[in-house]
Structures are given as structure tokens and as C-alpha cells.
């Protein structure tokens, strides 16, 4: 009898730890299920930012980052990068649209074999503060089958429940949209900690700011080309390498580090720590970047997570999406090898 109680008790604790006894609690698997319900299941593709193209190049560090972080990525020198431009949303065949959120994910390979992965978007702040907010936004902004557009009443309900999202959307709406991937600024949104060689900690956010003010190439926007944003990017890279400055913004005491919906004051110190150059483009069909999880918490020594709840949640959800898609058959990318070769 005692034995049965002991064994059942341990097994019960295990089931509780696994989340099996709390079917309504939000978990990485349930967030990915929500993405699949809203977008449909597209085997082999990322569950969000499903449409993308892979690029590569290098990062030239100017050494100025060493003041803040001992990460070897900031030592003066050049290191290879592999990256992926994407559009948000879970539909790999979606038509490019100017107001779809653009993403840039980068993997830096450091000289000592460490890696730094970062996934950024072109919004100035995050439209949600937590994983719950993200999930509810996905549900609220799902197209209404009757109109094909998000139901305004549901969006209103969402903003009422998440006032920080309403404020963030106001700021996002007030900023002009850049015309292409090439002249977009991409932001980490979440804060991170930089630890320098002396052990002192700085709280930072980072961005990559475009060197080219306009897309080098343009493509027709006549509704027949579903990939016009990607095609312009491809043509630009074929005509000349594209470059972005890696800008680190340093927080002052009191700046929120646990809330990516709130911008930091514009006068915060910004340090240009080096230049990212993109000189090759490749379709997901052949690039290894397709099978890279751009987990924002794959960080080198000298960069660490902040208290922003989005970071751990993103890491968990990306992992779940990665595990699902890697086990599925590969399907051709909307941005094909023929397209990237042009």
C-alpha cells in the first residue's frame, strides 16, 4: 500500500512537471498549435516567418564593442555570417505586402567556435510584452472567414486586455515604412546584458541600420509578382553587397529591460560596433539556414539574456517549431533557386 502511494506520488509529480495535469496552461506546444490552427499546417516550414530567403556574408567588427562586452564577436576582425530575411506570418506562400512585418535573423560564427544568433524585426518595439500577448494577438488578428480581414471587434477586445500593445501599435503606426528589405532597420526589441572583461554589466538593445538609403533594385508591384519584395532584395544583392551598421544602444538606470513594448529614450548612447555585409543570396531549398533555429538565446560568452519574459518564451517556442518542421518532409520555398540565381 505504502509502496503504491510512493510510486503514484512520484509519477504524479512527474506528470505535473510535464504540464499534463494543467491542460489549459500556455506551453510552447500550445502556442505552436495556435499558429498551426490560424495559418494551416505547412509541413517543413517555420510556424512563423515561414516565407524567407537565405543570405550570407561577413561581419567586420571595429573593436568598439569590447568596451561593453567581452564576447569575441566584438574583437576587431572579420567573421562569417549566415542570415535569413523573412516576412512574418505562418504561410510560406503568402504574397509580399509592404506592411507585413519583415524579419532578419543572423548567425555569427565567432573565431573560437562560439555562436551568436539573433532574430530581429523591422518594428521599433514589440507589439506584445509576453507570450500570452503574442498568442492572443495571433488569435485576434486571424482573418475573419467572412471578410478575409481581422475582425475589428476582436482586435478591440485584444487591445483592451493588453493596453501595452495598444500603445506599442500607436508608436509602430506613427513610423514611416521603408520601401524594401534593403533599407529597413531591424531591431532586437528585447534587452540583453553585455558583460565586459572587467565584469561590469550593461543593459543593451541592438539594431542593424541600413547603409543603403534605398533599394538598389526595384521590381514591379503590379500584383502578378507575389515575391516582389524578395525579388528586389535578390536583385540588389546581385548588383552590389548590402551593408548594415550594428548599433548597440545602452540603457540608463530606470529604462525598462523587461518590456519590449516600450522604447528607450532617443538620447541613449549608441555605439556602432561594426558592419554587416551581405553579398550572397540563396534559396531556402539549398541553404543550410533553412535548418537553423535562430534562437535568440544562442549567445556567446559576454552576452546574456535580460529579464525580458519574451526571450525565454521565444527560445522555447522556436525550439518547438524547429523540432516539428525538421521531422517533416521538405517542401519547395516560394522564393525558389531559379529566383535567387537571377
Amino acid at each position: 500500500m505504502t509502496i503504491g502511494v510512493v510510486i503514484a506520488g512520484i509519477a504524479g509529480l512527474f506528470a505535473y512537471a510535464a504540464g499534463w495535469l494543467t491542460p489549459n496552461a500556455l506551453t510552447p506546444a500550445r502556442i505552436v498549435n495556435t499558429l498551426e490552427e490560424v495559418n494551416g499546417r505547412h509541413p517543413g516550414f517555420r510556424r512563423n516567418h515561414a516565407k524567407g530567403v537565405c543570405v550570407s556574408g561577413y561581419f567586420n567588427s571595429n573593436g568598439r564593442g569590447t568596451e561593453l562586452s567581452k564576447a569575441s564577436v566584438f574583437q576587431p576582425g572579420r567573421m562569417p555570417v549566415i542570415a535569413r530575411f523573412s516576412l512574418s506570418g505562418g504561410q510560406p506562400e503568402a504574397a509580399d505586402a509592404p506592411d507585413t512585418v519583415r524579419g532578419l535573423a543572423i548567425l555569427f560564427t565567432l573565431p573560437d567556435g562560439e555562436e551568436w544568433r539573433t532574430a530581429m524585426i523591422n518594428l521599433p518595439v514589440a507589439p506584445f510584452r509576453t507570450a500570452e500577448g503574442f498568442t492572443d494577438l495571433v488569435l485576434a488578428s486571424a482573418p475573419d472567414p467572412a471578410t478575409g480581414k481581422p475582425d475589428p471587434a476582436r482586435m478591440q477586445g485584444f487591445f483592451a486586455r493588453y493596453p501595452e500593445s495598444a500603445k506599442a501599435m500607436e508608436l509602430i503606426g506613427s513610423q514611416p515604412l521603408s520601401s524594401g528589405f534593403e533599407n529597413s532597420r531591424f531591431n532586437s526589441l528585447s534587452a540583453f546584458r553585455f558583460i565586459n572583461a572587467a565584469g561590469s554589466v550593461a543593459w543593451v538593445r541592438w539594431s542593424v541600420a541600413p547603409v543603403q538609403p534605398e533599394p538598389v533594385a526595384t521590381t514591379r508591384l503590379d500584383g502578378t509578382n507575389k515575391n516582389w519584395l524578395f525579388d528586389a532584395l535578390i536583385a540588389s544583392i546581385h548588383s552590389q553587397p548590402l551593408a548594415w551598421h550594428l548599433i548597440v544602444t545602452v540603457a540608463q538606470a530606470g529604462d525598462p529591460t523587461d518590456d519590449a513594448t516600450i522604447p528607450w529614450p532617443a538620447d541613449r548612447r549608441q555605439i556602432d560596433v561594426g558592419t554587416l555585409t551581405i553579398d550572397r543570396v540563396e534559396s531556402e531549398d539549398t541553404s543550410p539556414a533553412r535548418d537553423i533555429n535562430f534562437d535568440p538565446l544562442v549567445l556567446p560568452n559576454g552576452i546574456a539574456a535580460s529579464d525580458d519574459p519574451l526571450l525565454s518564451a521565444r527560445s522555447a517556442v522556436y525550439s518547438q517549431s524547429f523540432t516539428r518542421r525538421e521531422g517533416e518532409p521538405k517542401n519547395p520555398s516560394a522564393v525558389s533557386t531559379a529566383e535567387t540565381a537571377r
Partner: peptide, 19 residues
């Protein structure tokens, strides 16, 4: 390890610390 493993895959906020 067994408890960390089974709880980390279900966790959002603690995932990073547990991994």
C-alpha cells in the same frame, strides 16, 4: 534531470534557465 527535462519542454518563462 528527468524532472528538468520534462518540465522545460512545457515551460515558457523558465525554459532558458532549465536548458
Amino acid at each position: 534531470m528527468l524532472f528538468i527535462g520534462v518540465s522545460m519542454v512545457a515551460s515558457l518563462g523558465d525554459y532558458h534557465r532549465l536548458v
